[in-house]
Every structure is written in C-alpha cells, then in structure tokens.
C-alpha cells in the first residue's frame, strides 16, 4: 500500500474516532464509529490480513453497529442538552490520556524494531482463510470451543436480562 493511502485511512480512523467521543448526539457517535471501523478495516487490508479486514466490516460495521443504532432508537435517546461540562473531570481525563500517548511515543521511540519496514511476503499457495482456519482447528481447537460456550452463555444471558419480570 502506498504511504499516502496509509496516512489517509489512519487519519480517517482517528478523526472519526475522536468524533465518537466529542459528538453530543448518540446517533452521530454511532455513525462516526462505523466510518472509524471502515478505516480500520482498510488498515487491516494494507497489512495483508484480508480475512480479519472482512470480519471487521461484517461483524463491527455490520452487526455490532446495527445493535448500537437499534438500542439508541429503542430507548429514544436525544442529544444531551444543557448539561454543564465538569471541567475538573474533563481536564483530568484529557491529562491522563495525554500522559498515555506520551508514554506510548517514548516506548515506541526506544523500540528498535519499530524503525524497520515490513519484510516482503512470498506468494502462498493457500489463501488467508485456509491458513487461519487450519490453525484455528488444530492448535487453537480448545480455545475455539470455549469461545463457542462463551457465546452461548452470552446469548442466554441476554435473553434472561431482557425478559420482563412478572409482577
């Protein structure tokens, strides 16, 4: 991927990620999150991780975002109005986030491998999905089944939580 496209998608992702936090209207936040996830999917594709990029679009930009928008519409949430900003909490949060960014910059500055470019790939006879699937069903078979149980438990939990209690 040419460097121009990397910076384009990275800035797209970061700008809309910041828009998620800064927007007062929850619907606008959710739609900014979709754009941010699409930029992230493009970055995954730039790293030759096509399967992860597709999954990102399908699961996040598709299913998870529909869930968010559905809940926002269901609860009929409006933009917060008239609420004063608590300046002490706001400056505290921004300062802690800035310290985190400075920390990350200094760690990456001391990290030798971070200055190297990515090595080139060989042409593979099998594709991305095949390679990940083979690993998933051989080395990571037990975690895969545990994740299956986890998703089942989450489904049951959601049904129980959203059931109305008889009065």
């Amino acid at each position: 991927m040419p460097p121009f496209l990397f910076w384009l998608f990275a800035s797209l992702m970061l700008v809309f990620g910041a828009a998620v936090v800064l927007n007062r209207n929850p619907v606008a936040s959710a739609l900014s999150l979709v754009v941010s996830f699409l930029g992230l999917a493009a970055l995954f594709m730039s790293l030759d991780a096509y399967f992860v990029g597709i999954i990102q679009v399908l699961v996040y930009a598709g299913a998870v975002m529909v869930l968010f928008l559905f809940i926002i519409m269901l609860l009929n949430l409006r933009a917060e109005e008239g609420r004063r900003i608590n300046w002490l909490a706001a400056t505290g949060g921004i300062v802690v986030a800035l310290i985190l960014v400075i920390q990350i910059f200094s760690v990456i500055g001391h990290f030798q491998a971070a200055r190297q470019t990515f090595p080139s790939l060989e042409r593979s006879t099998t594709d991305d999905v095949w390679n990940i699937g083979a690993l998933l069903f051989s080395n990571y078979n037990l975690p895969f089944q545990i994740v299956g149980v986890l998703v089942l438990v989450a489904t049951i939990g959601v049904v129980l939580l959203s059931k109305r209690e008889p009065r």
Partner: peptide, 11 residues
C-alpha cells in the same frame, strides 16, 4: 511505512 507508524496510530 514502518512498524512504528502502525503502533503509534494504534496507541
């Protein structure tokens, strides 16, 4: 593009 660029964007 180096590895560090991706790590900084991620951070």
């Amino acid at each position: 593009i180096t590895l560090g660029d991706y790590l900084i964007v991620s951070g």
